[in-house]
Design a protein around this nucleic acid. Structure first.
Lengths: 224, 224
DNA sequence: TTTTATTCATGAAAATCCTGATAGTTGAAG
DNA sequence: CTTCAACTATCAGGATTTTCATGAATAAAA
C-alpha cells in the first residue's frame, strides 16, 4: 500500500510517515504541490494525505487537479482550518475525507484504512458489470463466465452491455436496434437476432443456466 | 561507489576516508559546505557523510539544500550532538541516517552499506516502469526488453509510457490521441496506428510474447 | 545541408458485420 | 391433437469496416 503525504512541515510529515510505516504502509513525502504531482505520475498511490496549506499551487487546487487525473485516488485532507466552510471547500475540491489538526494518529490511521478499503472496492467494481456468474469488464472489453474467459467483438460487447444494464427487463428488437445499432423502425433486418445468437454461443453455450431468454412476441430478457 | 565526506576535522576525515578506501569505496573530503556543494555538482556521489558542525553554511542547512538538488542522494549525518532533539533536527533536514560520535567504524560502514543499498533500490524502481520483461527507463528515455537495449524517439516513448501506465486496459485511438498527441476527435489521421506499428517493430518484433495487442473495433491493449 | 523524426496517404489484408435464405419453434385456432 | 401462420434460430457468403504496413512528404534537429 503506497501512501503519499503532501505536507510542508517536515515534523508533521515525518510523524505521519513514521506512524504509517509502523503500520506497514509504504509512505512518501512531498513538501510541495509540484513534487506531489510528479510523484503521482511516477507511482500509483493508494491514497494521498494532503495538507491544504502547502507551497506553490495550494492544497485545494492540487486536489482538484489530481481528481481530474486520477479520479479514483482517494484524498484525505489534513489541515488546521476547522470551520465548516473550510471543510466544505475541501469536499468541494474532491476530498474524500477531512481531518483537522491537531489529531490523534490513531484516528488518521483508521480513516486511511477506510479510504483505502472503499477505494479498492469501488475501483474493482466500477469497471465491471456483474450478473450471476457473468462478469463484463468495461476496461478490458472482455467477459468472464465462471472461470472461462470470453473475447467479444465490438458489437457483441455493446449488445451484452445493453443487456446487462437492463437485466430482467424485456427488451424489444426495436429497443435493442435503437440503442445498440442506432437504427429505428427498420423491420427489414435481422441483425439483432443474429447477434443475440452470436452472444448465446459465447456466453450461454455449454453452461447450465442460460442468461439470454427469448420472450416470443416481445423480444429478449437477460438474467436468471 | 563514490562517497563524499564533509568534515572539518582533518584527523576524523582522513580516518573515515582510509577506512572506506580499505573497503573499496572511492572517498573524497570536503572541509567546508561550499566545497561540498561544488563537488556534488561535479560528481555523482552515491552517499554523503555529513558533519553538522562545519565552517560556513552549517551541516543542517547544507543537508536541506542538497536534498532539494539531489533528493535521492542519501545523507548520513555524523555529529557529536546526541540528544533526541538534535537527531530530529537532523532528520528534519532530510538526513537518512544519524550517527553520534564517538562511533565504531564498523557501524559507520554498515550504515553506509544499507543507505547505498536502499537508495539504489528506490533509485532503480523510481525511474522505471516494468511490465513483464519490458523495462522503460523514465530517466534515460530508453527501454529494455529482456537483454536487448531499445532506443526510442520522443513520441514512441510517450506512447509506450501511456501504454505501460494503463496496462491491461483497452485504450481507444481517441484515448491515445488525446493523451499522447493532445488532439481529440480528429478522425482524419492515422498517426496512432503508425506509431503503434513503430513500437511493435521495436519492442515486439522477434519476441515470442507480444505485448501490444489490437482489439479490433476498440483500440489497443498492452500487457500479456 | 544532411540526418532524423513525425505525419500523411495509400492499398492490401484481416476481421467484423450484415444480408437473405432456409430451417426450426411456438402457440393459438380449429 | 393437428394445423398453420407468425415468430425465431442458424448459416453461408459477400459487403463493409478496421487495421497493417509501407513509402512519400513535411517538419525538426544536428
Amino acid at each position: 500500500m503506497k501512501i503519499l503525504i503532501v505536507e510542508d512541515e517536515p515534523k508533521v510529515a515525518s510523524f505521519i510517515k513514521k506512524g504509517l510505516e509502523e503500520n506497514n504502509y509504504d509512505a512518501e513525502i512531498a513538501y510541495d504541490g509540484l513534487t506531489a504531482e510528479k510523484l503521482c505520475k511516477q507511482y500509483n498511490y493508494d491514497i494521498i494525505i494532503l495538507d491544504i496549506i502547502i507551497p506553490g499551487i495550494g492544497g485545494l487546487s492540487l486536489c482538484k487537479k489530481l481528481k481530474i487525473l486520477y479520479p479514483y485516488l482517494p484524498v484525505l485532507m489534513l489541515t488546521a482550518l476547522g470551520t465548516t466552510d473550510d471543510k466544505l471547500a475541501g469536499f468541494e475540491a474532491g476530498a474524500n475525507d477531512y481531518l483537522v489538526k491537531p489529531f490523534e494518529f490513531r484516528e488518521l490511521l483508521a480513516r486511511v484504512k477506510v479510504l483505502i478499503k472503499t477505494a479498492d472496492q469501488s475501483h474493482e467494481t466500477i469497471n465491471k458489470l456483474i450478473i450471476a456468474d457473468l462478469e463484463l469488464d468495461l476496461y478490458k472489453k472482455t467477459a468472464r463466465r465462471g472461470s472461462t474467459h470470453i473475447e467479444l467483438t465490438a458489437k457483441e460487447f455493446s449488445l451484452l452491455e445493453y443487456f446487462m444494464r437492463n437485466a430482467g427487463r424485456v427488451l424489444s428488437r426495436n429497443d435493442i436496434a435503437e440503442k445498440v445499432w442506432d437504427i429505428s423502425f427498420d423491420f427489414s433486418t435481422n441483425v439483432v437476432d443474429v447477434y443475440v445468437n452470436f452472444l448465446r454461443k459465447k456466453i450461454d453455450k455449454g453452461f447450465d443456466k442460460k442468461l439470454i431468454h427469448t420472450r416470443v412476441g416481445f423480444g429478449y430478457t437477460f438474467g436468471d
